[in-house]
Design a protein around this nucleic acid. Structure first.
Length: 344
DNA sequence: AAGACGTGGAG
DNA sequence: TCTCCAAGTCT
């Protein structure tokens, strides 16, 4: 056995050992059911565990398997997803459930290359599911893993580049245990979230410390190398809540774009908002303001009631009673403003 | 391939 | 209050 093989074997066993002793205890780690794992992986995309946990429990309770999920209406899935964000994930699990039932006999494919064909499953999720559920030896590279590996290998090229990602994948592959690849991947992710954090990594606690190339030079904080900085644009949106008797008028947003498929009050373009003010259709002294941050945008949201019986011309408006609203999917800021400001 | 797509917690 | 960003994917 060569020296490098011995070292790689040691890293493998160190990782597994660390995972057994220090890995996080999470509910979806108590099962190997690919459906439950899949759901957790989709929910946790760009989402913190604290935030996603409740949703995972709700989904598993309402829809315990692929078949029950495939029988749900898209609106039901969206409503259950309401408040979690990145709603294409909800629309995609709806599509995915149908594909799994019709083309895969309700079974999850066992390889990452096959999983990749399913809507909402990208390179990370495919590798996570195949390694955890089916023992495929492949690195699952999420944000945590990229950070850990970029420090471990002191990757000087920017993390956004395709070649860098490919290099990390190749370097990471030998570190994945053939016996329990899922544990290897989850060990790396746990190290990334609890030790090898973006700021102030706790290197003395890390099982990889002695093998970490950037740590040897004390430059671990310089990785991962990133190209771009985020620039925030500001936009304004204007909403008027329509009320007719005991019913509220709402609009269903188009499937694509922000908050796709969700419900909001009527959204006015700035010109119509100004016009409505001129015509005294909105009460200027009673406009609620809410700031909402998106990944690359700052949204300034303005809300008010519509005054008068003549509503803006819009064929999309649908009317709901207060009871109906519970089954509808709303974006988080809409939920916030409607409940906190006690519109309903 | 660069930009769109949410949200709430941390510092 | 403000900035950053977390278990990514899609177009």
């Amino acid at each position: 056995m060569s020296d490098s093989t011995i070292m790689i074997n040691k890293i493998q066993t160190d990782l597994i050992k660390w995972f057994d002793n220090h890995g996080r205890s999470l509910p979806w780690r108590r099962t190997k059911d690919p459906y439950a794992i899949w759901l957790s992986e989709i929910i946790l995309q760009q989402t913190r565990i604290d935030q996603g946990l409740k949703y995972w429990e709700n989904f598993l309770r309402e829809f315990p398997d692929v078949k029950s999920l495939s029988m749900a209406k898209e609106s039901e899935i969206l409503a259950l997803w309401s408040g979690l964000g990145y709603y294409s994930r909800a629309r995609n699990i709806y599509k995915a459930a149908h594909i799994l039932v019709s083309k895969y006999e309700s079974q999850f494919p066992k390889t990452s290359s096959e999983l990749l064909k399913i809507p909402g499953i990208g390179p990370y999720t495919a590798a996570a599911i195949s390694s955890i559920c089916f023992g495929e030896v492949t690195p699952a590279l999420d944000g945590n893993a990229f950070r850990v590996y970029s420090r471990l290998f002191a990757m000087s090229s920017p993390i956004e580049k395709r070649s860098t990602i490919k290099d990390i994948w190749t370097l990471a592959l030998p570190l994945i245990s053939n016996k329990s690849p899922g544990d290897s991947n989850q060990a790396i992710m746990d190290i990334g979230s609890t030790i090898c954090k973006p700021k102030n990594p706790n290197c003395p606690e890390c099982p990889l410390e002695e093998n970490c190339i950037s740590r040897r030079s004390g430059i671990q904080h310089e990785f991962p190398v990133k190209l771009k900085s985020i620039k925030i644009k500001e936009i304004e949106k204007f909403y008027v809540l329509l009320k007719r008797g005991e019913k509220y008028g709402l609009i269903r947003r188009p499937k694509s774009g922000i908050w796709g498929g969700l419900w909001t009050p009527l959204e006015l373009i700035p010109e119509d908002w100004e016009l409505a003010k001129t015509n005294k259709n909105i009460d200027e002294s009673n406009i609620k303001y809410l700031k909402h941050l998106l990944s690359h945008r700052k949204m300034n949201l303005y809300f008010t009631y519509w005054i008068g019986d003549t509503f803006p011309e819009n064929k999309e408006i649908q009317w709901f009673s207060e009871q109906d609203l519970k089954r509808l999917a709303f974006p988080a800021p809409i939920i916030k403003i409607l409940s906190e400001k006690s519109y309903f």
